[in-house]
Design a binder for these strands. Structure first.
Lengths: 204, 204
DNA sequence: CAAGTTTTTTACCATTTGGTAAAGTTACGA
DNA sequence: TCGTAACTTTACCAAATGGTAAAAAACTTG
């Protein structure tokens, strides 16, 4: 019996990361089926069998990406402080989500692809990890609302609308670029708008 | 030389529609590359070469769907009356978008897939058809705002946020189904929330 | 109903694609 | 520095997939 857990070598760590990085961009823009191992190999300057040396299969790369994505994706939600100032906690969360949309559009699109297609590989993860966290946050927000610190509304739909609006800027960037060609300060404008909108919505 | 324009037969019309219908569902959930001609053939009870008899290629089916989609998709925006009551025109538009999300989730996801992947086949169409309409509507909304009939904000981002929130219910249904398992009146709840939210946002 | 046209079916084909086998090369600890 | 384990490369392969050829069947129309 071989030892299954073995500290990965420097090369191992480096190359797995290079593969992840290349695959992330390709999966995000072409989807899982639309991306070929050859493309990934090309994009990271490796040969196809080399990918399979580091990951069991194309699907294994995808799953690896989705797993690491999930953690990063949830951290802002987790970072909300139940004892903080309600309105400012919400606005901080929204600001963090907008920032993620701007800094990590590939991750946002990878996630969007997965969910639009029915979350074939992520459903269990959503159930087991996202759902409990989501329910807890809804509870906190609900408390804030009954305490009169936030305007009264359905907490779940509020969170959906925050996700929708913030992620839209990453996921539908192709469309936005056509409709609002002023490249320079588009992100600033978006952030100012979203912040103002939700502040108005949330203020009791 | 054969006559290129010929009135399509009854069978022609019927079968092309059957193919469209099957392809729409498959493209929407698996994407273009993730869908095979065999799957489409299966889904509409035809044989693969039969598809090619009615459409030149797999891509031709996709393009056909995107073209018809574009028109339906824009009609609510076009239906806004510049001379109507501003707040009620906006709310009517939002209501229609929510209704489309509920009635035509496949179309919404097809569109989402296309845009998330950088709109490879739709960019020209967005430029030539959506952009002018969008600009016109932004102008109208802007006028309403300067007249004090609507709260002041960036019209383009307002439209983006409406699209984001309404389409989110179709595009991310897989996620929402996990987080809000109360199947029955989910749509009602969503519509009530979205309407209330935007009414508050838009009211001066 | 007969001739011609449209539509369907069967049998194929070339390319792409995920993945493997195994030889060759490099890194690395004793 | 030498041997071994880690890594890379080349040459493949089987299945899947978009598409074609052409015969068979069904439908239309004079």
């Amino acid at each position: 019996m071989t030892s299954t857990a073995r500290k990965p070598s420097r090369i191992q760590t480096e190359n797995r990361q290079r593969i992840r990085d290349a695959a992330l961009g390709l999966f995000a823009t072409h989807g899982f089926r639309g991306t070929t191992l050859d493309q990934i190999a090309d994009a990271c300057g490796m040969h196809k069998p080399n990918l399979i040396y580091y990951f069991d299969s194309k699907e294994a790369i995808h799953i690896d990406l989705l797993n690491t994505l999930m953690e990063e994706w949830l951290s802002p939600l987790d970072a909300m402080d139940p004892d903080g100032d309600p309105l400012e906690e919400m606005m901080g969360y929204i600001r963090r989500k907008m920032e993620m949309s701007r800094l990590y559009p590939r991750e946002s699109r990878l996630f969007a692809n997965e969910i639009v297609q029915g979350a074939p590989r992520m459903l269990p993860h959503l159930e087991s990890t996202l759902k409990p966290l989501f329910d807890r946050q809804c509870g906190i927000i609900n408390r804030w609302m009954t305490e009169g610190k936030l305007a009264q509304m359905h907490p779940a739909h509020l969170i959906f609308s925050i996700w929708a609006v913030t992620q839209h800027y990453a996921d539908f960037e192709a469309q936005i670029a056509v409709l609002l060609p002023g490249d320079d300060k588009r992100a600033r404008g978006a952030e100012a708008f979203v912040e103002a909108m939700f502040r108005k919505v949330l203020t009791p």
